[in-house]
Nucleic acid binder design. Structure first.
Length: 423
RNA sequence: GGUGAGGUGGCUGAGUGGUCGAAAGCACAUCUUUGCUAAAGAUGCGUAGCCUUAACAGCUACCGAGGGUUCGAAUCCCUCCCUCACCGCCA
């Protein structure tokens, strides 16, 4: 969330920067400002009364010791007590309201974030490789997957419904090989610590990373236990340090985690739903960083480079685009998307979204660090997929398909997969 | 799930209704002394909010969480959560 002091001191600047996002947040900023004024007035009044009560109560203690009658003075304090309760309720209501408002205001786009209103205005940053050419009509992964016995969408629908899939045989093995390939790459070559977190988390975690309260309809929730299935490893992994004050030596924190991800995808039925592209459950290796504010922008570049390395090693053509202010995520200050080419689809697929959240998530989860002067400061958090598995699977299978219907396994993956081709 | 014990500051650990934000020790920081790879002493050392500010200071809250009793709660009562031990169940 945003710093209330920033809003208090520079409301126009905040509104102006939020205006570049999609959605109108100016009225929320106005409201949070007026609530803040009310809250502080009530808080000041309450604290003055509490101070009075503390002082008089001490006097009562002393008087009683001296055997004096204190009934009159006690009655007076009783009156203060009820006023404290009254004004305190006001202060608490304002405080809760202020927090709610702050939680539903998105992050300010970074100065470096290109201004634009829709995805069409996202600038292309760079391109790696070229679209592969085929002397035959490249097939879709669903066709290839069915022919080679790798993907069973009917079985997925039978046991769990639409947008669920069963990986089988070489498909299951390829998925597993990709997971360990990705984790090995990031842990041994890029310096990340491997994390295997719980997949069910408390609501506080989702508030911390920004999915709640606004996007509650996108996550699966177990009401009986009040636990949520994670929509991304970003949630448990970033929240590892919620409510902590990290020593400076610990920064930057670099974590890599493989987890399944669960998304309700409410409202996106029929949107790019072909095959594996939008599932309720998919695997992903996520990269998470916690850094000082001074280094976060450089770390975003290296995080993105770490994710790109995956596609380079697998020999998959991709491009990197930067999200403009109108397309950027709720909590992000700056985001790069990596899109891999899928020949069977004839389109680019988003396999990674690398974002710098600035202090937005850290403030929500009360995450701080001690700087060199021993002062508590708010660090920056970053995350990016390294990469999403289902779409990587699509790109890989479609890119490396051969005229005879078999699929070549790229060199870098053979050690993990244990064979040179499928079929 | 059952029974028992317990949750206090970075750690250990006192504190069972009144000047306790909390003894003491450890750790840490600064300084002093002796001196030289260590010891002794002094001082400081939680988090957040409010009010102010050049800065300091001041005030309030926080002793697992939430409620209650009271003029006053770390301390008494209730509910919940968590940890540990044993039992039960179980991959």
């Amino acid at each position: 969330m945003l710093d209330i002091r920033l809003i208090r001191d520079n409301p126009e600047q905040v509104k102006q920067r939020l205006a570049n996002r999609s959605g109108d947040f100016a009225s929320l900023v106005d409201e949070v400002q007026s609530i803040d004024t009310q809250r502080r007035a009530a808080e000041t009044e309450r604290q003055k009364l509490q101070s009075d009560r503390n002082r008089i109560s001490k006097e009562i203690g002393i008087a009683k010791k001296n055997g004096q009658d204190t009934s009159a003075i006690e009655a007076e304090v009783r009156g203060i007590g009820s006023r404290i309760e009254e004004i305190g309720r006001e202060a608490d209501v304002a405080d809760a309201r202020q927090r709610d408002l702050l939680l539903s205001i998105p992050n300010l786009p970074h100065e470096a974030c290109p201004v634009g209103s829709t995805a069409e205005e996202n600038p292309e940053v760079r391109v790696w490789g070229t679209k592969p050419a085929y002397d035959f009509q490249p097939k879709d992964h669903t066709v290839l997957g069915a022919a080679l016995g790798m993907l069973d969408f009917e079985a997925g629908a039978k046991i769990s419904g639409s947008a669920f899939v069963v990986y089988r045989a070489a498909g299951a093995k390829l998925e597993r090989a990709l997971i360990s390939f990705l984790l090995d790459l990031h842990t041994t070559q890029h310096g990340y610590e491997e994390i295997s977190p719980p997949l069910l988390v408390k609501s506080e975690c989702l508030v911390g990373t920004g999915q709640l309260p606004k996007f509650g309809d996108q996550v699966y929730h177990s009401a009986a236990d009040d636990l949520y299935l994670i929509p991304t490893a970003e949630v448990p992994v970033t929240n590892l340090h919620r409510d902590e004050i990290l020593p400076l030596e610990k920064l930057p924190v670099n974590y890599a985690a493989y987890t399944p991800c669960f998304r309700r995808e409410a409202g996106s039925a029929g949107l790019g739903t072909r095959g594996l592209i939008r599932m309720h459950q998919f695997d992903k290796v996520e990269l998470v960083k916690i850094t000082t504010p001074e280094t976060s922008m450089a770390e975003l570049e290296s995080l993105t480079a770490n994710a790109e390395k995956v596609l380079q090693l697998l020999g998959l053509h991709y491009r990197v685009i930067e999200l403009c202010t109108g397309d950027i995520g709720f909590g992000s200050a700056k985001t790069y998307d990596i899109e891999v080419w899928a020949p069977g689809q004839g389109t680019y697929l988003e396999v990674s979204s690398c974002s710098n959240f600035g202090d937005y998530q850290a403030r929500r989860m009360n995450l701080r660090y001690k700087d060199e002067n021993g002062k508590n400061r708010i660090p920056h958090t970053l995350n990016g997929s390294g990469t999403a598995l289902a779409r990587l699977f699509v790109a890989l299978v479609e890119t490396y398909q051969q005229a005879d219907g078999t699929i070549l396994i790229p060199e870098a993956l053979r050690g993990h997969f244990g064979a040179e081709k499928i079929g």
